[in-house]
């Protein structure tokens, strides 16, 4: 699998000819460093991203008719990062992101530029600090598809403000937009979800669901009725919450290890 590793401003890579990238470093603390990735043929990419106090903009451009899977492992401490996806017609991006111990401000921007452009985004996040996440999804062509699923767990001092805004302007007929935002809140701080659907066209399908809470009594009762202790049942449910949608073995393993560490 292709791999790009970013640690502060040091970038290492091991990639095939299916993609290329360039780095535009920042010259002072106020400038934003840029990582520009071009995906030319269908492939998978691992992106390891660790940064403290630096500001990054990661631009991912996909060629027409290309299917790509991006597995992003992010570890930010007081960092700011912006992801921008440009997805042309008949192209699909699946963006899987796992992050832990985040204290960050983050923005994900996806532009669906041509018919059939599809963006699936799956965030799995264990938050121990203050975190702000903003998603902006633009359906800039008819028959485009977006599917945003955010599963976040807050522990210790974790406090998340999650805003997801989807825009479907007039004329973007046949577009499908879905948002599913869930926060399991195990910290004393108050988290927030702001789901927005800005839809100007009638001939579309758009839906969202948002939930902040803990495990349901019903789920705990079911597991405990099989002799599983409350603690073990909670661990199992947490693991399920963070592993849903993730089929990549490496990412599953990393999530399982973090779950074990955070939920002893």
């Amino acid at each position: 699998m292709n791999r790009i590793t970013v640690v502060d401003e040091n970038v290492e890579s091991n990639i095939s000819s299916k993609l290329s990238f360039q780095v535009v470093p920042s010259h002072n603390e106020f400038e934003i460093a840029r990582l520009e990735i071009q995906i030319k043929k269908s492939c998978s990419l691992e992106l390891f991203f660790t940064s403290s106090s630096k500001r990054w903009k990661i631009v991912i451009e996909v060629a027409e008719g290309v299917d790509s899977k991006i597995y992003c492992y992010q570890n930010l401490l007081n960092g700011k990062v912006q992801y921008r996806f440009q997805i042309p017609q008949k192209s699909t991006v699946e963006f899987y992101k796992f992050q832990g111990i985040a204290s960050s401000k983050e923005m994900v921007e996806a532009h669906l530029l041509g018919e059939g452009a599809t963006f699936h985004s799956f965030l799995k996040d264990i938050s121990k600090e203050k975190e702000t996440l903003d998603y902006y999804i633009y359906h800039d062509a008819p028959k485009t598809v977006s599917n945003i699923r955010n599963n976040i767990v807050t522990v210790e001092e974790g406090k998340v403000t999650l805003q997801v805004s989807t825009f479907i302007p007039k004329g973007m007929v046949g577009s499908i937009a879905s948002q599913n935002n869930r926060i399991l809140n195990f910290s004393d701080k108050k988290s927030e979800i702001r789901p927005n659907l800005y839809v100007e066209e009638y001939d579309v399908s758009a839906n969202h669901s948002a939930l902040i809470g803990r495990f349901s009594e019903e789920e705990l009762f079911y597991l405990m009725s099989r002799g599983i202790s409350e603690k073990e049942a909670s661990r199992l449910l947490l693991k399920g919450f963070l592993l849903s949608d993730i089929t990549n073995k490496k990412m599953r393993k990393k999530i399982e290890l973090s779950t074990k560490k955070e939920w002893r």
């Binding site: 789920e219 079911y222 597991l223 099989r226 002799g227 599983i228 073990e232 199992l236 449910l237 693991k239 399920g240 919450f241 963070l242 592993l243 849903s244 949608d245 993730i246």
Partner: peptide, 13 residues
């Protein structure tokens, strides 16, 4: 239960 495989669940049980 989303995300928990039957194998994992039954083994835990």
């Amino acid at each position: 239960i989303e995300g928990v495989s039957n194998a994992d669940f039954l083994r835990t049980v």
